[in-house]
Simulated scan of single mutants.
Amino acid sequence: MKVFHSIVGIAALTLTSPLPAKQRSEAPPPTQVMIVGTMHFANPGLDYRNLAVDDVLAPKRQREITAIVRALSRFSPTAVGVEWREDAASTAYAKYKEGALPASRDETVQLGFALAKSAKLDAVHGLDIPASLPFEPAVAFAQSHGKQPIIDRITTVSDQNVAAQERALRTEGIAATLQLLNDPVSADGTHGLYRELLKLGSGDEQPGLEVTATWYRRNLGICAKLLQATKPGDRMVVFIGAGHLTLLQQCVRETPGYSLVDARAYIPR
């Protein structure tokens, strides 16, 4: 059995076998993907540090959300993806369209379902592949090997991010918070904390690697579902926790035939 160590050979073969001119001129239109990194509206408390969000069902917040959905609709989406499992998203969106879904504070419903219904889409794509990060062994390793400053730095940066988001939400509103969350510098800074975790390990004991690898695998799984749910010419909007932003944008950006759209150009200011 052959074991492939890379796909470079495949790429080289492709490059040495050019398509006829007619086929090259008939390239399909790109699939455009806008990834909207969000905070969790319903306060599920599932992240390492969590933003406290006031009641998004209150009239003031509903007006803000309506304005955001209206602005995003200018993208004319042909598909919407959300951070739910496929079966849950499909069932709930069907009820939502019928007006039979109970009131929900979840950003999937408030933003994803609302945009999909506004665009008259028949379905919403559930893209999530949930996974629990094995963070505790990494923390234990840090504590027992003089690496606690790494955990302290992750905590400090996370707390600072949450404080900035809470300040934006309190003083400027949901749209301003989304603008902050979708800033690439901020997103990359948060993503870089997973690289810090790679320092937690020695020899065959690699708890930091396990956390990071689990996170990467989850995001690759989400991107796989995104690619499988789209076709050439689609215009997809994905609503997902902002921590996923860097890896999902990278996956879309590096996939042939896909074009990444900056959500900040559509989120109201």
Rank of each mutant, 00 (worst) to 15 (best):
G126Y: 02
R253G: 05
N182F: 04
L13S: 12
A131K: 15
G201L: 01
A42N: 14
E196G: 03
T214W: 01
G37Q: 05
T38G: 06
N219C: 03
P137S: 11
V185E: 14
A27H: 06
Q160R: 10
D234R: 13
I65P: 04
V8G: 04
G233S: 07
Y93S: 02
T255S: 11
V124R: 08
D204W: 08
E107F: 09
A138W: 02
G9L: 01
G37V: 01
A71N: 10
R70I: 02
R218F: 07
M39E: 14
A176P: 08
P268D: 09
I222E: 01
A168R: 15
L51M: 09
L127G: 05
D54Q: 04
L200T: 03
V157M: 09
E172C: 01
L169T: 13
G126I: 00
C251W: 01
G126D: 05
L181H: 12
T108I: 03
S104I: 00
I35F: 05
G192F: 03
F135E: 11
W215M: 02
K95M: 13
D204M: 00
T66M: 13
S17V: 08
S144G: 05
K147L: 07
F135R: 12
I174D: 13
F135K: 09
R74T: 08
N43Q: 12
M39C: 15
L19Y: 07
V8W: 13
C251N: 03
R218S: 05
M39L: 12
D234P: 00
G192W: 02
V53P: 10
